[in-house]
Simulated assay, not measured.
Amino acid sequence: MTSPPTSDPSATEGKLANSKDALPRHVAIIMDGNNRWARARGLSGVRGHHAGVEAVRATIRRAAERGVETLTLFAFSSENWKRPRAEISALMELFLLALKREVTKLHANGIRLSVIGDLSAFSESIRKHIARAEAKTRDNTRLHLVIAANYGGHWDLARAARRLGERVAAGELDPSLIDEAAFADELSLADVPSVDLCIRTSGEQRISNFVLWELAYAELHFTPCLWPDFDAEAFDLALDDFQRRQRRFGMTDEQIEAQQGA
Results as ranks from 00 to 15, higher is better:
Ser3Thr: 15
Thr6Asn: 11
Ala11Asn: 03
Glu13Thr: 10
Ser19Val: 02
Asp21Ser: 14
Asp21Arg: 00
Pro24Met: 13
Met31Pro: 02
Asn35Met: 06
Asn35Arg: 12
Trp37Glu: 01
Ala38His: 02
Arg39Gly: 02
Ala40Pro: 00
Arg41Leu: 01
Arg47Gln: 15
Arg47Phe: 05
Arg47Ile: 05
Glu54Gln: 13
Ala55Ser: 15
Arg57Gly: 04
Arg61Thr: 15
Ala64Phe: 07
Ala64Glu: 14
Glu65Thr: 13
Val68Thr: 10
Thr70Phe: 06
Thr72Ala: 03
Phe74Lys: 02
Phe76Ile: 02
Ser77Val: 04
Ser78Val: 14
Arg83Ile: 01
Arg83Leu: 06
Ser89Cys: 08
Leu91Tyr: 07
Met92Asp: 08
Met92Asn: 09
Glu93His: 13
Leu94Asn: 00
Leu96Gln: 09
Ala98Asp: 01
Leu99Met: 10
Leu99Trp: 08
Val103Arg: 03
Lys105Arg: 12
His107Cys: 05
Arg112Trp: 05
Ile116Ala: 01
Ile116Thr: 00
Asp118Val: 07
Phe122Met: 01
Phe122Trp: 05
Ser125Val: 12
Arg127Gly: 02
Lys128Glu: 14
Ala133Tyr: 00
Ala135Val: 03
Asp139Arg: 09
Thr141His: 12
His144Met: 06
Leu145Cys: 08
Leu145Thr: 11
Val146Pro: 04
Asn150Val: 11
Asn150Met: 06
Tyr151Phe: 11
Gly152Cys: 04
Ala160Gln: 07
Ala161Gln: 04
Ala169Asp: 11
Ala170Pro: 07
Phe183Thr: 05
Leu187Phe: 00
Leu189Lys: 01
Pro193Gln: 08
Pro193Cys: 00
Ser194Ile: 02
Leu197Trp: 05
Arg200Ile: 06
Gly203Asp: 00
Gln205Thr: 14
Ile207Pro: 02
Asn209Tyr: 00
Phe210Trp: 10
Leu212Gly: 02
Leu220Arg: 00
Trp227Leu: 03
Pro228Ile: 00
Phe230Leu: 10
Ala232Met: 11
Ala232Lys: 15
Glu233Ser: 07
Ala234Phe: 03
Phe235Val: 08
Leu239Lys: 09
Asp240Val: 13
Asp240Tyr: 06
Arg245Trp: 08
Arg245Phe: 09
Met251Leu: 15
Met251Thr: 15
Gly261Trp: 08
Ala262Met: 11
